[in-house]
Design a protein around this nucleic acid. Sequence first.
DNA 1: GTACTTGCAAATACTTTGCAGGTAT
DNA 2: ATACCTGCAAAGTATTTGCAAGTAC
Lengths: 117, 117
Amino acid sequence: VIAFLDTQPCCVGAQEIHDQLRGRGEPVGLASVYRVLETLAQQGLVQRLDLGDGVTRFEPARTGEDHHHHLVCDGCGKVESFADARLETVIRDVEQRSGYDVAAHDVLLRGACGACR
Amino acid sequence: VIAFLDTQPCCVGAQEIHDQLRGRGEPVGLASVYRVLETLAQQGLVQRLDLGDGVTRFEPARTGEDHHHHLVCDGCGKVESFADARLETVIRDVEQRSGYDVAAHDVLLRGACGACR
DNA sequence: GTACTTGCAAATACTTTGCAGGTAT
DNA sequence: ATACCTGCAAAGTATTTGCAAGTAC
């Protein structure tokens, strides 16, 4: 599961991970996938993500260069990612003023993609 | 349901709405609550929100002055809201460059609140 | 009467847990 | 032998849907 996650550029759901691993011959159970993800999430190694479709997704919590956020198309369900340095700066600023010890942040944009407009 | 939502300063879950309405004597069914929320969400009158605990929350999509985002405490589950004008400006900018017709955006910060640190 | 709305109960979908069998030390 | 890990099946939870009864026009 860890090796698979590491090859993923963006977020994936537990069932998707399970199907992919099964597809390549790994006899792993769905419960084990969830258990691994739970452990990794607790340690902050993967980030939990909820895109609003009822499926919890996970992605490696890469530091720095690969940090990104998500754009979801309400029409076709497509998920894209984007990154913006100014956005990160402003968020870091908000975090510092919040009084919280912020462990993670997430920005979600939803709307119609170019094809669905 | 609409009247109740209108009195809510921040997001609430469907079951919570149901319990509250029942508590004040309204004999409404849980399914109807979900149906109303679904309709309102489709029309863009309420915003769907996923805070990561498996419960979908809803809040009135108020224009302008009441627009805010959320801070969730991983320790005690407390949810707070915050607003930041600079953040909105930067997000609007990202939205325009995205190629999407963005209908809604959401920023979620999670970490330890002052008491839980 | 027709069309729409309602609440209940059943169904669905995702996630978590119990447990028996297996592996490593 | 002890402690841990695994997969399957069952349980749990949140949400959606089918349907019969009720309401409005």
